[in-house]
Amino acid sequence: MRVTFTVNGRRETADDVWEGESLLYVLRERVGLPGSKNACEQGECGSCTVYLDGTPVCACLVAAGQAEGREVRTVEGLADGDRLDPVQEAFVECGAVQCGFCTPGLVVQAHDLIERVEQPSDAEIREALAGNLCRCTGYEKILDAVRLAAARKAAAS
């Protein structure tokens, strides 16, 4: 089948898509956006988190056909050219990135959190990121990064 959708502001068409393919597979293997990660492919780890019409979803749980005509924003669509999004910047600065495989999903999820909540408490950060597994960091530096990104965003607005 053919699937047409918008990703990071660009219209993309994928041909010969097998009906069983996920949005994650189409992003990674058909439109050249492997930033969203394939850690569990069963909706448990959050590493494939993307915005679908503005709502964070696990791209591995979305059938490719369900993306037809819709708007997807991936981790590759957060930075403005070379200028990192404040969440991305804070993740690098705070040491929230080790192997980095969970990072794209966490960055998208944290981006959504601080869009919705101006100065999230630690409990709110933990709750918002509870669906994103990280095996390297023990999450301390991730908390640091989200706090920093939220503070900078609040200071800038």
Partner: peptide, 23 residues
């Protein structure tokens, strides 16, 4: 010191090439 990771920016942008990303 604690300079930034050389691969950090690529990783937060989703541009770091993991072994499953090769094509």
């Amino acid at each position: 010191d604690s300079p930034l990771r050389p691969d950090g920016t690529l990783k937060v942008k989703g541009e770091f090439a993991y072994s499953s990303d090769l094509w």
